[in-house]
Design a protein around this nucleic acid. Structure first.
Lengths: 225, 225
DNA sequence: TTGTATTATAAAGATTTCGTAAAGATATGA
DNA sequence: TCATATCTTTACGAAATCTTTATAATACAA
């Protein structure tokens, strides 16, 4: 395989330099970003194979960046932090961080953890666009196309469709969907779901009266195929 | 999904006890081994969902155990160690350890790293399908296939079939089935069962008049095979 | 073989769940 | 501010599912 590409998101130039030297001498290609915002843009325009994210960023909190990245980025994200705070670590890991290292870290360990993470991620296939029949969902750009034509979706409609697509083939319960899209306290508002499934079907189904993508599983939930 | 099962391989009884209490109170099922050799035997006879491995074992070095496990075991292995030695960490990670924590570790962090590791391993392989002849039941996706074709089942029909499949070969009494599917107060409504077994047979049996999967045990209940 | 208990099937009735339209509420942006 | 888009509710007919009843088929024991 080619050189793996690693994106460093860190506001301290010295750290970036240090990491760059170490990573490049170990055969990685390095891209840098000094703010969270820049990191999001860079990673979206050219997704790296792994991201090193400093949690103590000045513009947005690293936790926020992590969440935004994880909406579409499913390769490894390793957190670097001066904080040796358990709550911080737990929160980062639960929000999808692959690993968490406390600064100052040992270079050899960091490199080993990077190798380990990249190796594992290669075993899983990750795609930032999902293709289901004539529907194409670009998780990075948040754009949905049907037979090459862009489908205009509201934010909630998109979130719902993306959730379906990420779980293609599985039956998702009303509860689960409501929890994911609207939040924990909306688990009983199944009527929301009916309305939004209705509008989604109108937009993505050939014949909304005979849906081929969003299938109703009566009494349970819906299934996307 | 069911309780994830975690195997602890550690020679110190206090550590095992501490881990056991913490893990069990977080909903995990815990199995223990006090030596590396025992750990290998236990994991081979009944593979756990994750292994916590102490690197400083008396009989074989933990590194050796790790290598032997990794010859066939591909679920997460998290190393616990009193050694805060970089070479040790690097070696463990390069030999396929999923993570490496130094004792004394923080319980919350360990639990978060366990959650993270299990979550990732589930994304790679989610084969929770039960196969019975030409019938395939995917318990996670909640989907039933017969000879590759999806069989459309109502919620109750699915629950019933899943119950049968989970108890393949066993005779389930009317009482038991009714209690499991409809609830405690329906134990005498055997007619429900007859109706639903009938519709299920129509959907999954080659010849519903001569069922091969759902067998009647007259006067007792049914058996799935 | 006959009678009884158990099981199977069909179909009607009751209930729940679903889909849709549309009105009201809220947010968004010029 | 107003206009527009979006979200939340409400209402009701349609569809799917569940429950009940009736009756036929089958199994089993005397």
């Amino acid at each position: 395989m080619n050189k793996a590409e690693i994106l460093i998101i860190d506001d301290e130039p010295q750290i970036r330099k240090l990491l760059q030297i170490n990573l490049e001498s170990n055969g990685y290609k390095v891209v840098q970003a000094s703010t969270g915002k820049e990191g999001l843009i860079v990673s979206a325009s050219h997704p790296p194979d792994l991201i090193l994210l400093d949690i103590g960023l000045p513009d947005k909190s690293g936790h926020q960046i992590l969440k935004e990245l994880r909406e579409w980025y499913n390769k490894p994200i390793i957190i670097l932090s001066v904080q040796d705070n358990e709550a911080d670590i737990v929160s980062a890991l639960d929000n999808g961080a692959t690993d968490y290292l406390t600064k100052p870290f040992r270079t050899g360990e960091l490199l080993a953890r990077i190798r380990s993470a990249i190796k594992r991620s290669q075993n899983t296939e990750n795609n930032s666009t999902i293709l289901c029949g004539d529907i194409e969902i670009d998780l990075i750009a948040r754009i949905v196309k049907r037979k090459e034509d862009i489908v205009k979706l509201t934010s909630t409609e998109y979130n719902l469709l993306a959730l379906f697509a990420k779980n293609e083939g599985k039956v998702l319960t009303h509860q689960f969907i409501l929890k994911e899209i609207w939040g924990y306290s909306y688990q009983t508002e199944t009527q929301y779901l009916r309305v939004f499934v209705g509008t989604l079907r109108k937009k993505i189904e050939e014949n909304p009266n005979n849906p081929q993508h969003i299938i109703t599983e009566s009494g349970v939930g819906y299934r996307f195929q």
